[in-house]
Amino acid sequence: MTTKKNTTKSTSKSSSTKASPRRRAVKSAMYRPSDDDLIAFYRQMLLIRRFEEKAGQMYGMGLIGGFCHLYIGQEAVVTGVQTALKDGDKVISGYREHGHLLAVGADPKAVMAELTGRSGGVSQGKGGSMHMFDPARGFYGGHGIVGAQVALGTGLGFANKYRKTDNVSVAYFGDGAANQGQVYESFNMARIWNLPVIYIIENNQYAMGTSVSRSSSQVELFRRGESFNIEGKQVDGMNVLAVRGAMEEAVKICREGKGPAILEMKTYRYRGHSMSDPAKYRSKEEVKKMRAEHDPIDQVKEMILKAGVMDEAALKDVDKEMKSIISDAAAFAQECPEPELSELYTDVMA
């Protein structure tokens, strides 16, 4: 896929607070999508949205236990990032990772069955919502400890370099996770050894109930690599073309052995932190405004209609198709048996 330079001005400018006097923020060029790209983005994001809606509903029915963190609102990030990768690239994330599994191509049935704790789940029902793995597709979890994936992802990048491949690794983490010490230990190592790691900060503006401004001395998280001499960029994470455009550049840098790179994705989660979060720390208006004005799926939908790639009826058919994939997944996740009791003792050690 070729990336042509975008000539039109970026439409949705993300608000950058307190511009630093040190360095001006540089934006990447928007990705110029083909018709097929647009359709693929739309399908991918809609699949994740419908999946998560169903998961929320099934949680409410008591079919999913424990914690369940939904990705609704953030679909453009994983979609833009994953489509810029190639075979052999490795990916790691936190506990809000259902969408990441779907974006690496995991079967929605297996992802949903993990949520219900069944033998057909991606982790055989042993991991649950927060601990899903699919190494065959380059996905290394699914980590419940905030920040852990940053050091681990740096290690995945180290392995790529060690083996002398041009593969990259991607470590997704939140704005809250960005305050863990190991993030900066990782940044430092990644720079001194020029590791091919792309750090994707999914800045959805809240860590549980704590807004970025309450937890961070530097709220422009893309600048967090400055003292390690790692270039960072801020990206409109609600716009899949902006995400993909920024990724094209970051991937190039890393494949050429000049990594790491930091991309701060300004995004938003529509739902509470987990299913049990009453979300009193933000106003309903704030959520409504985001949904109405920045929804990643609506944005692509508009592009598709405007470019005449599909009409309303065809888009509706896509939605129907996604809903049916998800309802099959939900049925599978409920019909599939629980793991055999003997599985309790397996996989502890080799």
Partner: peptide, 9 residues
């Protein structure tokens, strides 16, 4: 063993 997620386990 590490605690499994599946309800029965």
């Amino acid at each position: 063993v590490p605690l499994p997620y599946a309800a029965n386990l």
